[in-house]
Computed example of a mutant assay.
Amino acid sequence: MSEIVSEILSGITYVRGDATEPCAGGARVIAHVCNDVGGWGRGFVAALSGRWPEPEADYRAWYRDRAGNDFGLGAIRLVPVAPDLWVANMIGQHGVRRPGRTAPAPVRYDAIDTALDRLAGQVIELGASVHMPRIGCGLAGGSWPRVEPLITERLVRRGVPVTVYDHGEDGP
């Protein structure tokens, strides 16, 4: 169950809840950011894998066969997980952050922007709403004030309803 917290000028609806349980009817896409090195297992992907095996299996196959496909920064794949529900694996992170190391954050804002632009075309065609955690801002190390305008520009301004989910007491 999600609780609406606020809708701000960006046109994004913020709720407290679980992004793997979209709070809307109709066609829905759960969007999230993946890395470009084939790593899956920490962060939001663990929640996805806890609900459906398909997003992880598709990501791993996509990575494994990358020499013959479009896998790379800015690429996306929509993976069906239920009727009228897809998971969008979006490559927006270069590498991964190793615990205890001070390497630069792996987030790549330009790749997230490209992925969101590609996502927009697909969700408009599906007539879907988009649901997500604060993409690129967890393990990828990104800044929400830099990601939010990308979502507004690429999705909201094109008429795509977007809901961002915050777990627990973290609000907008």
Rank of each mutant, 00 (worst) to 15 (best):
P22I: 10
D18M: 07
N35H: 06
E54N: 13
T102C: 08
V107S: 05
D166A: 14
Y165C: 03
L155T: 02
C137N: 11
A128W: 07
A105I: 08
V164L: 00
V29N: 02
N69R: 13
P149K: 03
E148C: 04
P145Q: 05
R157S: 13
V164C: 07
A128T: 06
R134H: 09
A19L: 10
E125L: 03
C23D: 11
S2E: 14
H94G: 12
G127S: 09
Q122V: 09
D117I: 08
G38M: 13
V162Q: 05
V130I: 15
C34R: 04
A47M: 09
S49F: 00
G127W: 07
A61P: 09
V33T: 14
T163A: 03
G26H: 06
L155Y: 05
G38H: 10
N69P: 13
D170E: 12
I12G: 00
E153Y: 05
A75V: 08
W62M: 06
R158W: 08
L48E: 08
A88K: 00
G136A: 02
L85W: 06
V87H: 08
P80T: 03
R101I: 00
G159E: 07
T13E: 13
G168E: 12
G121A: 12
V5R: 14
F71W: 06
T20V: 12
R157C: 06
R16K: 15
V37P: 04
H131Q: 04
L126N: 05
Y59V: 04
G39H: 13
G26T: 07
P53Y: 01
E21Y: 04
I8L: 13
Y165N: 01
G38T: 14
E169S: 14
L78K: 05
V160P: 00
N35G: 11
E148T: 03
V15C: 09
Y63C: 14
S129G: 14
I135G: 00
G68C: 12
G141H: 00
A82V: 02
V37I: 15
A67N: 13
A24K: 02
R16Q: 13
A128G: 09
P53H: 06
G25E: 15
N35D: 03
A61E: 15
R157P: 02
W144F: 09
V15P: 02
C23H: 08
R77L: 10
M90G: 01
I76E: 01
S6G: 10
I30E: 11
N69D: 14
A47L: 15
R66G: 09
G26F: 08
R77K: 15
V37N: 11
D84I: 02
Q122I: 01
R66L: 12
V130P: 10
D113T: 14
V123A: 12
P106W: 05
E169M: 09
V123Q: 10
S6Q: 13
L73G: 13
R108S: 12
H94P: 00
R101Q: 13
D70I: 08
T20I: 12
R134Y: 02
W144N: 06
V123L: 10
N35Q: 07
T20G: 00
